[in-house]
Design a protein around this nucleic acid. Structure first.
Lengths: 144, 144
DNA sequence: TATTGTTATACTCTATAACTATA
DNA sequence: TATAGTTATAGAGTATAACAATA
């Protein structure tokens, strides 16, 4: 049974387990385990899309507002985020990452990159060239 | 500042966020949310590497044995796994996935593939060809 | 009156400690 | 005596419900 050159289903079946497995391994590269996954994920989200209100962060993180209240309180305690009043709506607060929070994220990102770097260095240059051309496509798949 | 054709660090920085983002989106494609992530992950592990003892599963899943005891009890209650005595060691049990458990996993896998299929179908054939050649490399990165 | 955010409380999941059975 | 697995109990983390402040 021959696989067609452009078999979408075959490609999905090949790609899915490989992506999930490598993604899990990258996520496991942590330097500092003092933040829970929920705290780390919220911090990434605020960095990426902030400043955001607690409710917006809760929605993006798919947790309920009271749960986010606790996560934000713990991050504020660490001085990883700061809170500013909303310019026009007195009920809302706007949350942003502090320089200390940015530094934490950068250290974690560097650890993940270093790990991935070591792995990539074991490939042939031609293989890395393929991955380099695949990277924007993987990003596109997540974007559509 | 020009990027070298074979810049490993640049590749890692490109690949990491794309992989993590797409992986997260694939993982979010669930059909049935009655299993917790811990239950689902243990079931995948048993399917992949089983039959395994509870202690081995706990180790692979990076949870403590008492936590795995509960997860296994819930999966057994659902008739997703079965327990057999170890042939030579009366203390151990060997856990394997039942046909009903396999069916559950297959349904979840199919949902993830269907979602990924739809996305892949939006790409150009040439782009899919690049991803097809990248898939084994992504797998290789996780394997090394 | 509706919405944002917090506090109060309960439930789920995982961990450590203690116990039973087998090697 | 050591190891596999379970039971007992406690500690995080998240949820729902109720409340205070602002739109």
């Amino acid at each position: 049974m021959e696989t067609a050159p452009d078999d979408v289903a075959e490609l999905a079946a090949q790609l899915r387990p490989a992506l999930l497995r490598l993604g899990r391994m990258i996520r496991n590269q942590r330097v500092d385990f003092s933040l829970t996954l929920g705290q780390l994920s919220a911090l990434y989200t605020i960095e990426k899309s902030g400043p955001l209100s607690p409710r917006q962060i809760a929605s993006l993180e798919r947790v309920q507002p009271p749960s986010m209240t606790k996560i934000l309180a713990s991050l504020e305690e660490l001085d990883f985020i700061r809170r500013e009043p909303h310019p026009t709506d007195g009920r809302q607060a706007l949350i942003a990452v502090t320089p200390k929070g940015e530094e934490y994220l950068q250290i974690e990102r560097t650890a993940r990159d270093r790990w991935l770097n070591r792995r990539l260095a074991m490939l042939e240059p031609a293989e890395r060239a393929i991955l380099m051309s695949a990277a924007p496509l993987i990003d596109k798949l997540a974007e559509i």
